[in-house]
Design a binder for these strands. Structure first.
Lengths: 236, 236
DNA sequence: CAGTGGTCTAGACCACCGA
DNA sequence: CGGTGGTCTAGACCACTGG
Protein backbone atom coordinates (compact mmCIF):
# COMPACT_ATOMS: atom_id res chain seq x y z
CA UNK A 1 0.00 0.00 0.00
CA UNK A 2 2.54 2.53 1.14
CA UNK A 3 5.10 1.74 -1.50
CA UNK A 4 4.13 5.05 -3.08
CA UNK A 5 6.84 7.61 -2.86
CA UNK A 6 4.25 10.23 -2.00
CA UNK A 7 2.28 9.43 1.15
CA UNK A 8 -1.46 9.16 0.74
CA UNK A 9 -2.22 12.03 3.07
CA UNK A 10 0.10 14.25 1.04
CA UNK A 11 -1.74 13.32 -2.13
CA UNK A 12 -5.01 14.26 -0.53
CA UNK A 13 -3.57 17.53 0.69
CA UNK A 14 -2.23 18.33 -2.76
CA UNK A 15 -5.56 17.52 -4.34
CA UNK A 16 -7.48 19.77 -1.99
CA UNK A 17 -4.90 22.52 -2.28
CA UNK A 18 -5.18 22.42 -6.03
CA UNK A 19 -8.93 22.82 -6.02
CA UNK A 20 -8.61 25.82 -3.75
CA UNK A 21 -5.77 27.42 -5.67
CA UNK A 22 -7.56 27.01 -8.98
CA UNK A 23 -10.65 28.57 -7.53
CA UNK A 24 -12.86 25.50 -7.98
CA UNK A 25 -13.69 25.87 -4.32
CA UNK A 26 -14.04 29.38 -3.02
CA UNK A 27 -13.73 30.63 0.53
CA UNK A 28 -16.66 29.32 2.53
CA UNK A 29 -17.31 26.38 0.23
CA UNK A 30 -17.39 22.96 1.85
CA UNK A 31 -14.47 20.59 1.42
CA UNK A 32 -15.26 16.88 1.07
CA UNK A 33 -15.72 15.26 4.44
CA UNK A 34 -13.37 12.68 5.87
CA UNK A 35 -15.69 9.85 4.94
CA UNK A 36 -16.06 11.20 1.41
CA UNK A 37 -12.28 11.26 1.07
CA UNK A 38 -12.08 7.71 2.46
CA UNK A 39 -14.18 6.42 -0.39
CA UNK A 40 -12.73 8.61 -3.07
CA UNK A 41 -9.12 7.78 -2.31
CA UNK A 42 -9.62 4.35 -0.77
CA UNK A 43 -7.93 5.37 2.44
CA UNK A 44 -8.76 5.01 6.09
CA UNK A 45 -10.36 7.74 8.06
CA UNK A 46 -7.22 8.48 10.08
CA UNK A 47 -5.42 9.27 6.87
CA UNK A 48 -8.13 11.56 5.59
CA UNK A 49 -8.24 13.15 8.99
CA UNK A 50 -4.54 13.82 8.98
CA UNK A 51 -4.69 15.48 5.58
CA UNK A 52 -7.51 17.81 6.55
CA UNK A 53 -6.08 18.48 9.99
CA UNK A 54 -2.76 19.55 8.53
CA UNK A 55 -4.46 21.79 5.99
CA UNK A 56 -6.37 23.36 8.85
CA UNK A 57 -3.10 23.92 10.72
CA UNK A 58 -1.76 25.69 7.66
CA UNK A 59 -4.84 27.85 7.67
CA UNK A 60 -6.11 26.77 4.28
CA UNK A 61 -9.33 25.30 5.61
CA UNK A 62 -11.49 25.71 8.67
CA UNK A 63 -12.91 22.77 10.56
CA UNK A 64 -15.86 22.84 12.90
CA UNK A 65 -16.92 19.73 14.70
CA UNK A 66 -20.38 18.69 13.73
CA UNK A 67 -20.49 21.14 10.87
CA UNK A 68 -17.74 20.26 8.47
CA UNK A 69 -14.62 21.48 6.72
CA UNK A 70 -14.74 24.64 4.66
CA UNK A 71 -12.31 26.64 2.59
CA UNK A 72 -10.93 29.37 4.83
CA UNK A 73 -11.22 33.05 4.14
CA UNK A 74 -7.74 33.58 2.82
CA UNK A 75 -6.90 36.43 5.10
CA UNK A 76 -4.07 35.37 7.15
CA UNK A 77 -1.38 34.71 4.69
CA UNK A 78 1.66 35.02 6.78
CA UNK A 79 5.37 35.12 6.50
CA UNK A 80 8.14 34.24 8.79
CA UNK A 81 10.30 36.82 10.37
CA UNK A 82 13.24 34.90 11.67
CA UNK A 83 15.85 35.93 14.18
CA UNK A 84 19.10 35.24 12.45
CA UNK A 85 22.71 35.80 13.14
CA UNK A 86 23.81 38.75 11.05
CA UNK A 87 27.15 37.14 10.33
CA UNK A 88 25.40 34.17 8.78
CA UNK A 89 23.11 36.45 6.85
CA UNK A 90 25.95 38.42 5.32
CA UNK A 91 27.98 35.32 4.61
CA UNK A 92 25.01 33.85 2.79
CA UNK A 93 25.08 36.77 0.41
CA UNK A 94 28.70 35.86 -0.32
CA UNK A 95 29.96 38.97 1.41
CA UNK A 96 32.42 39.59 4.20
CA UNK A 97 31.14 40.41 7.63
CA UNK A 98 33.28 42.37 10.05
CA UNK A 99 32.59 44.01 13.37
CA UNK A 100 33.76 47.21 14.97
CA UNK A 101 33.61 47.15 18.74
CA UNK A 102 32.63 50.39 20.40
CA UNK A 103 31.86 49.28 23.90
CA UNK A 104 31.93 46.12 26.00
CA UNK A 105 31.17 46.89 29.62
CA UNK A 106 29.36 45.96 32.76
CA UNK A 107 27.00 48.62 34.03
CA UNK A 108 24.25 49.28 36.49
CA UNK A 109 20.88 49.03 34.84
CA UNK A 110 18.94 52.22 34.36
CA UNK A 111 15.22 52.10 34.98
CA UNK A 112 14.21 51.34 31.39
CA UNK A 113 16.74 48.56 30.92
CA UNK A 114 16.01 47.08 34.34
CA UNK A 115 12.33 46.97 33.55
CA UNK A 116 12.87 45.32 30.17
CA UNK A 117 15.13 42.67 31.60
CA UNK A 118 13.03 42.10 34.68
CA UNK A 119 15.80 43.16 37.05
CA UNK A 120 16.00 45.62 39.91
CA UNK A 121 17.14 49.09 39.05
CA UNK A 122 20.88 49.28 39.51
CA UNK A 123 21.42 45.56 38.97
CA UNK A 124 24.49 44.58 37.00
CA UNK A 125 23.96 44.18 33.28
CA UNK A 126 26.23 43.67 30.32
CA UNK A 127 26.29 46.32 27.67
CA UNK A 128 27.77 46.10 24.20
CA UNK A 129 27.75 48.48 21.29
CA UNK A 130 28.95 47.16 17.96
CA UNK A 131 28.83 48.16 14.34
CA UNK A 132 28.36 45.39 11.80
CA UNK A 133 29.82 45.88 8.36
CA UNK A 134 29.17 44.12 5.10
CA UNK A 135 32.20 44.33 2.83
CA UNK A 136 33.43 47.16 4.97
CA UNK A 137 30.21 49.17 4.76
CA UNK A 138 28.34 49.69 8.03
CA UNK A 139 24.91 48.10 7.91
CA UNK A 140 23.88 47.74 11.53
CA UNK A 141 24.48 49.63 14.75
CA UNK A 142 23.78 47.26 17.60
CA UNK A 143 23.24 48.56 21.12
CA UNK A 144 22.50 45.66 23.41
CA UNK A 145 21.94 44.96 27.08
CA UNK A 146 22.24 41.41 28.32
CA UNK A 147 21.00 39.79 31.50
CA UNK A 148 24.03 38.17 33.20
CA UNK A 149 21.84 35.39 34.51
CA UNK A 150 21.03 34.29 30.98
CA UNK A 151 24.55 34.46 29.54
CA UNK A 152 27.21 34.74 32.25
CA UNK A 153 30.07 34.43 29.76
CA UNK A 154 28.80 37.14 27.49
CA UNK A 155 31.57 39.66 28.11
CA UNK A 156 34.31 37.11 27.46
CA UNK A 157 33.17 36.60 23.91
CA UNK A 158 35.40 37.76 21.09
CA UNK A 159 32.82 39.79 19.25
CA UNK A 160 35.01 40.07 16.18
CA UNK A 161 34.54 36.32 15.81
CA UNK A 162 31.15 35.62 17.33
CA UNK A 163 28.24 38.01 17.09
CA UNK A 164 26.16 38.70 20.19
CA UNK A 165 23.17 37.09 18.53
CA UNK A 166 25.09 33.91 17.89
CA UNK A 167 26.49 33.80 21.40
CA UNK A 168 23.04 34.23 22.84
CA UNK A 169 21.48 31.67 20.52
CA UNK A 170 24.11 29.18 21.58
CA UNK A 171 24.13 29.87 25.30
CA UNK A 172 20.60 30.97 25.97
CA UNK A 173 18.29 29.19 23.54
CA UNK A 174 15.45 31.58 23.11
CA UNK A 175 11.92 30.67 23.81
CA UNK A 176 10.19 33.91 23.14
CA UNK A 177 10.81 37.32 21.68
CA UNK A 178 9.06 40.48 20.77
CA UNK A 179 10.05 43.25 18.46
CA UNK A 180 8.95 46.50 17.03
CA UNK A 181 10.13 48.19 13.89
CA UNK A 182 10.08 51.91 13.39
CA UNK A 183 11.54 54.53 11.12
CA UNK A 184 13.75 56.98 12.96
CA UNK A 185 16.48 59.46 12.37
CA UNK A 186 19.79 58.40 13.85
CA UNK A 187 21.29 60.28 16.74
CA UNK A 188 24.68 61.87 16.34
CA UNK A 189 26.70 58.85 17.43
CA UNK A 190 24.72 56.42 15.32
CA UNK A 191 25.01 58.62 12.26
CA UNK A 192 28.75 58.98 12.69
CA UNK A 193 29.35 55.28 13.23
CA UNK A 194 27.12 54.25 10.34
CA UNK A 195 28.70 56.87 8.11
CA UNK A 196 25.47 58.58 7.19
CA UNK A 197 24.02 62.05 7.56
CA UNK A 198 21.79 62.91 10.50
CA UNK A 199 18.87 63.43 8.17
CA UNK A 200 19.03 60.00 6.60
CA UNK A 201 16.23 57.77 7.80
CA UNK A 202 16.93 54.45 9.47
CA UNK A 203 15.01 51.31 10.29
CA UNK A 204 15.16 50.74 14.00
CA UNK A 205 14.30 47.40 15.46
CA UNK A 206 13.84 47.05 19.17
CA UNK A 207 14.01 43.46 20.18
CA UNK A 208 13.58 41.74 23.48
CA UNK A 209 14.38 38.08 23.86
CA UNK A 210 13.45 35.63 26.56
CA UNK A 211 15.25 32.40 27.34
CA UNK A 212 13.39 30.09 29.64
CA UNK A 213 12.77 31.92 32.90
CA UNK A 214 14.98 34.91 32.17
CA UNK A 215 14.59 37.91 29.95
CA UNK A 216 17.85 37.47 28.10
CA UNK A 217 18.53 40.66 26.27
CA UNK A 218 17.18 43.88 24.86
CA UNK A 219 18.69 45.32 21.74
CA UNK A 220 18.30 48.40 19.62
CA UNK A 221 19.31 47.64 16.06
CA UNK A 222 19.72 50.59 13.72
CA UNK A 223 19.88 49.99 9.97
CA UNK A 224 20.64 52.72 7.49
CA UNK A 225 17.49 52.96 5.41
CA UNK A 226 19.23 53.29 2.14
CA UNK A 227 21.27 50.13 2.60
CA UNK A 228 18.93 47.72 4.23
CA UNK A 229 15.43 46.48 3.85
CA UNK A 230 13.47 43.74 5.48
CA UNK A 231 12.01 41.54 2.84
CA UNK A 232 9.89 38.47 2.94
CA UNK A 233 7.47 36.17 1.26
CA UNK A 234 4.03 35.13 2.21
CA UNK A 235 2.84 31.68 1.35
CA UNK A 236 -0.63 30.31 1.74
CA UNK B 1 -10.17 6.80 27.98
CA UNK B 2 -10.74 10.05 26.18
CA UNK B 3 -13.06 11.52 28.75
CA UNK B 4 -10.18 13.82 29.71
CA UNK B 5 -10.77 17.41 28.80
CA UNK B 6 -7.19 17.65 27.61
CA UNK B 7 -6.34 15.18 24.85
CA UNK B 8 -3.54 12.76 25.56
CA UNK B 9 -1.35 14.01 22.76
CA UNK B 10 -1.63 17.54 24.13
CA UNK B 11 -0.57 16.34 27.53
CA UNK B 12 2.48 14.70 26.02
CA UNK B 13 3.29 17.85 24.06
CA UNK B 14 2.98 19.99 27.15
CA UNK B 15 5.19 17.62 29.10
CA UNK B 16 7.92 17.67 26.49
CA UNK B 17 7.64 21.42 26.03
CA UNK B 18 8.04 21.94 29.73
CA UNK B 19 11.22 19.91 29.92
CA UNK B 20 12.66 21.91 27.07
CA UNK B 21 11.57 25.28 28.41
CA UNK B 22 12.94 24.53 31.85
CA UNK B 23 16.22 23.51 30.33
CA UNK B 24 16.08 19.92 31.58
CA UNK B 25 16.70 18.92 27.99
CA UNK B 26 19.07 21.10 26.03
CA UNK B 27 19.33 21.52 22.30
CA UNK B 28 20.70 18.32 20.81
CA UNK B 29 19.54 16.16 23.70
CA UNK B 30 17.39 13.17 22.83
CA UNK B 31 13.66 13.25 23.51
CA UNK B 32 12.01 10.03 24.69
CA UNK B 33 11.13 7.82 21.74
CA UNK B 34 7.61 7.04 20.71
CA UNK B 35 7.72 3.64 22.36
CA UNK B 36 9.08 5.17 25.56
CA UNK B 37 6.20 7.60 25.59
CA UNK B 38 3.76 4.77 24.95
CA UNK B 39 4.80 3.07 28.13
CA UNK B 40 5.19 6.16 30.21
CA UNK B 41 1.81 7.61 29.37
CA UNK B 42 -0.01 4.38 28.61
CA UNK B 43 -0.94 5.54 25.15
CA UNK B 44 -0.78 3.99 21.71
CA UNK B 45 2.03 4.71 19.33
CA UNK B 46 -0.13 6.78 16.99
CA UNK B 47 -0.82 9.16 19.84
CA UNK B 48 2.82 9.48 20.83
CA UNK B 49 3.64 9.93 17.18
CA UNK B 50 1.17 12.73 16.79
CA UNK B 51 2.55 14.59 19.78
CA UNK B 52 6.14 14.41 18.56
CA UNK B 53 5.18 15.10 14.95
CA UNK B 54 3.36 18.27 15.92
CA UNK B 55 6.25 19.42 18.08
CA UNK B 56 8.50 18.86 15.10
CA UNK B 57 6.18 20.92 12.92
CA UNK B 58 6.44 23.72 15.45
CA UNK B 59 10.19 23.46 15.24
CA UNK B 60 10.74 22.52 18.85
CA UNK B 61 12.26 19.15 18.08
CA UNK B 62 13.99 17.51 15.16
CA UNK B 63 13.15 14.02 14.04
CA UNK B 64 15.35 11.78 11.95
CA UNK B 65 14.13 8.41 10.89
CA UNK B 66 16.26 5.66 12.31
CA UNK B 67 18.06 8.04 14.60
CA UNK B 68 15.53 9.56 16.93
CA UNK B 69 13.96 12.75 18.15
CA UNK B 70 16.14 15.50 19.54
CA UNK B 71 15.62 18.95 20.97
CA UNK B 72 16.09 21.41 18.13
CA UNK B 73 18.63 24.17 18.07
CA UNK B 74 16.32 26.97 19.00
CA UNK B 75 17.40 29.23 16.20
CA UNK B 76 14.49 29.83 14.02
CA UNK B 77 12.02 31.36 16.32
CA UNK B 78 9.68 33.08 13.98
CA UNK B 79 6.76 35.38 14.01
CA UNK B 80 3.88 35.89 11.74
CA UNK B 81 3.52 38.96 9.66
CA UNK B 82 -0.06 39.02 8.57
CA UNK B 83 -1.70 40.98 5.82
CA UNK B 84 -4.61 42.66 7.48
CA UNK B 85 -7.21 45.12 6.49
CA UNK B 86 -6.23 48.46 7.99
CA UNK B 87 -9.82 49.28 8.78
CA UNK B 88 -10.09 46.19 10.92
CA UNK B 89 -6.78 46.95 12.56
CA UNK B 90 -7.81 50.44 13.57
CA UNK B 91 -11.24 49.31 14.67
CA UNK B 92 -9.63 46.70 16.88
CA UNK B 93 -7.83 49.44 18.74
CA UNK B 94 -11.21 50.97 19.39
CA UNK B 95 -10.50 53.90 17.11
CA UNK B 96 -12.27 55.37 14.14
CA UNK B 97 -10.95 54.68 10.67
CA UNK B 98 -11.65 57.10 7.86
CA UNK B 99 -10.31 57.41 4.35
CA UNK B 100 -9.45 60.36 2.17
CA UNK B 101 -9.58 59.57 -1.54
CA UNK B 102 -6.96 61.27 -3.65
CA UNK B 103 -7.21 59.35 -6.87
CA UNK B 104 -9.28 56.55 -8.41
CA UNK B 105 -8.41 56.09 -12.04
CA UNK B 106 -7.70 53.75 -14.87
CA UNK B 107 -4.30 54.22 -16.46
CA UNK B 108 -1.85 52.68 -18.86
CA UNK B 109 0.80 50.76 -17.01
CA UNK B 110 4.27 52.21 -16.99
CA UNK B 111 7.16 49.81 -17.37
CA UNK B 112 7.74 49.21 -13.66
CA UNK B 113 4.09 48.59 -12.85
CA UNK B 114 3.59 46.42 -15.93
CA UNK B 115 6.52 44.29 -14.93
CA UNK B 116 5.32 43.88 -11.36
CA UNK B 117 1.84 42.89 -12.42
CA UNK B 118 2.99 40.67 -15.27
CA UNK B 119 1.26 42.76 -17.91
CA UNK B 120 2.38 44.32 -21.17
CA UNK B 121 3.60 47.88 -20.98
CA UNK B 122 0.67 50.17 -21.66
CA UNK B 123 -1.94 47.66 -20.51
CA UNK B 124 -4.86 49.07 -18.55
CA UNK B 125 -4.44 49.07 -14.81
CA UNK B 126 -6.41 50.52 -11.93
CA UNK B 127 -4.72 53.09 -9.79
CA UNK B 128 -5.85 54.37 -6.40
CA UNK B 129 -4.25 56.71 -3.95
CA UNK B 130 -5.79 56.96 -0.50
CA UNK B 131 -4.90 58.28 2.89
CA UNK B 132 -6.03 56.26 5.89
CA UNK B 133 -6.68 58.08 9.11
CA UNK B 134 -7.01 56.89 12.66
CA UNK B 135 -9.20 59.22 14.70
CA UNK B 136 -8.63 61.82 12.04
CA UNK B 137 -4.84 61.52 12.09
CA UNK B 138 -3.22 60.26 8.87
CA UNK B 139 -1.40 57.01 9.44
CA UNK B 140 -1.00 55.49 6.00
CA UNK B 141 -0.56 56.80 2.48
CA UNK B 142 -1.56 54.02 0.11
CA UNK B 143 -0.57 54.15 -3.54
CA UNK B 144 -1.83 51.02 -5.27
CA UNK B 145 -2.00 49.54 -8.75
CA UNK B 146 -4.42 46.69 -9.37
CA UNK B 147 -4.57 44.14 -12.14
CA UNK B 148 -8.06 44.39 -13.70
CA UNK B 149 -8.04 40.67 -14.40
CA UNK B 150 -7.84 39.93 -10.69
CA UNK B 151 -10.48 42.40 -9.52
CA UNK B 152 -12.61 43.74 -12.38
CA UNK B 153 -14.93 45.62 -10.03
CA UNK B 154 -12.17 47.38 -8.18
CA UNK B 155 -12.95 50.89 -9.36
CA UNK B 156 -16.62 50.63 -8.44
CA UNK B 157 -15.79 50.16 -4.80
CA UNK B 158 -16.73 52.87 -2.35
CA UNK B 159 -13.35 53.25 -0.73
CA UNK B 160 -14.76 55.28 2.11
CA UNK B 161 -16.60 52.12 3.14
CA UNK B 162 -14.37 49.29 1.94
CA UNK B 163 -10.62 49.48 1.94
CA UNK B 164 -8.69 48.28 -1.11
CA UNK B 165 -7.15 45.51 0.94
CA UNK B 166 -10.54 44.26 2.02
CA UNK B 167 -11.96 44.41 -1.51
CA UNK B 168 -9.00 42.45 -2.79
CA UNK B 169 -9.13 39.90 0.02
CA UNK B 170 -12.79 39.32 -0.75
CA UNK B 171 -12.61 39.24 -4.53
CA UNK B 172 -9.16 37.88 -5.18
CA UNK B 173 -8.24 35.54 -2.34
CA UNK B 174 -4.51 35.80 -2.19
CA UNK B 175 -2.25 32.86 -2.54
CA UNK B 176 1.11 34.50 -2.38
CA UNK B 177 2.70 37.80 -1.54
CA UNK B 178 6.05 39.42 -1.09
CA UNK B 179 7.03 42.57 0.67
CA UNK B 180 9.92 44.73 1.60
CA UNK B 181 10.14 47.28 4.34
CA UNK B 182 12.43 50.26 4.22
CA UNK B 183 12.95 53.56 5.93
CA UNK B 184 12.52 56.50 3.58
CA UNK B 185 11.84 60.18 3.57
CA UNK B 186 8.47 61.05 2.13
CA UNK B 187 8.21 62.95 -1.13
CA UNK B 188 6.46 66.27 -1.17
CA UNK B 189 2.98 64.91 -1.84
CA UNK B 190 3.25 62.17 0.75
CA UNK B 191 4.50 64.60 3.38
CA UNK B 192 1.69 67.00 2.68
CA UNK B 193 -1.02 64.37 2.76
CA UNK B 194 0.33 62.74 5.89
CA UNK B 195 0.73 66.09 7.54
CA UNK B 196 4.39 65.70 8.34
CA UNK B 197 7.61 67.48 7.47
CA UNK B 198 9.73 66.33 4.56
CA UNK B 199 12.54 65.41 6.91
CA UNK B 200 10.46 63.09 9.03
CA UNK B 201 11.30 59.46 8.37
CA UNK B 202 8.67 56.99 7.26
CA UNK B 203 8.31 53.26 7.10
CA UNK B 204 7.63 52.26 3.53
CA UNK B 205 6.25 48.86 2.71
CA UNK B 206 6.20 47.70 -0.88
CA UNK B 207 3.87 44.82 -1.26
CA UNK B 208 3.01 42.63 -4.20
CA UNK B 209 0.17 40.16 -4.01
CA UNK B 210 -0.69 37.21 -6.18
CA UNK B 211 -4.09 35.61 -6.48
CA UNK B 212 -4.11 32.30 -8.27
CA UNK B 213 -2.72 32.81 -11.74
CA UNK B 214 -2.69 36.62 -11.66
CA UNK B 215 -0.47 39.12 -9.98
CA UNK B 216 -3.23 41.03 -8.26
CA UNK B 217 -1.78 44.26 -7.03
CA UNK B 218 1.30 46.23 -6.11
CA UNK B 219 1.13 48.78 -3.37
CA UNK B 220 3.38 51.33 -1.78
CA UNK B 221 2.34 51.94 1.80
CA UNK B 222 3.89 54.89 3.58
CA UNK B 223 3.64 55.14 7.37
CA UNK B 224 4.80 58.17 9.31
CA UNK B 225 7.59 56.82 11.48
CA UNK B 226 6.59 58.69 14.56
CA UNK B 227 3.03 57.36 14.52
CA UNK B 228 3.37 53.80 13.47
CA UNK B 229 5.47 50.80 14.23
CA UNK B 230 5.31 47.23 13.17
CA UNK B 231 5.32 45.03 16.20
CA UNK B 232 5.19 41.36 16.74
CA UNK B 233 5.88 38.38 18.87
CA UNK B 234 8.01 35.38 18.31
CA UNK B 235 6.93 32.11 19.79
CA UNK B 236 8.86 28.91 19.88
C1' DC C 1 -31.66 12.28 14.25
C1' DA C 2 -27.70 11.54 10.89
C1' DG C 3 -23.47 13.46 9.66
C1' DT C 4 -19.45 15.66 11.02
C1' DG C 5 -15.00 16.14 13.11
C1' DG C 6 -11.86 14.94 17.61
C1' DT C 7 -9.62 11.48 19.58
C1' DC C 8 -7.79 6.99 20.49
C1' DT C 9 -6.21 2.03 19.92
C1' DA C 10 -3.65 -2.17 18.57
C1' DG C 11 -1.90 -3.79 15.40
C1' DA C 12 1.02 -3.61 10.82
C1' DC C 13 4.85 -2.93 7.12
C1' DC C 14 8.44 -0.15 5.73
C1' DA C 15 12.93 2.71 5.41
C1' DC C 16 16.48 4.28 7.78
C1' DC C 17 20.33 4.67 11.23
C1' DG C 18 23.90 3.27 14.16
C1' DA C 19 26.41 -0.22 16.36
C1' DC D 1 20.93 -6.37 13.83
C1' DG D 2 17.59 -3.74 17.00
C1' DG D 3 15.61 0.63 17.62
C1' DT D 4 13.86 4.53 15.50
C1' DG D 5 10.50 7.20 13.01
C1' DG D 6 6.98 7.31 8.67
C1' DT D 7 2.94 5.65 7.30
C1' DC D 8 -1.34 3.19 7.19
C1' DT D 9 -5.60 0.53 8.63
C1' DA D 10 -10.10 -0.81 10.65
C1' DG D 11 -12.29 -0.28 13.99
C1' DA D 12 -14.11 2.52 18.18
C1' DC D 13 -16.42 6.18 21.35
C1' DC D 14 -17.35 10.80 21.84
C1' DA D 15 -19.16 15.80 21.23
C1' DC D 16 -20.95 18.76 18.39
C1' DT D 17 -23.95 20.71 14.56
C1' DG D 18 -27.72 20.96 11.72
C1' DG D 19 -32.26 20.10 10.22
Amino acid sequence: MQKDVVPAYEQVKAWVRQHIARGDWKPGDPVPSESALMEQFGISRMTANRALRELAAEGLVTRVQGSGTKVAQLHRISSQLVIRDIHEEVAERGHVHTTRILEVTEEKAGPAVAESLGLRKGARVFHTILVHMENGVPIQYEDRYVNPAAAPDYLNTDFTQTSPTLHLLQHAPLTEASYSIEACLPNEVEARELGIRRGEPCLVMMRRTVSGAHAASVARLVYPGARYSIAGQFQA
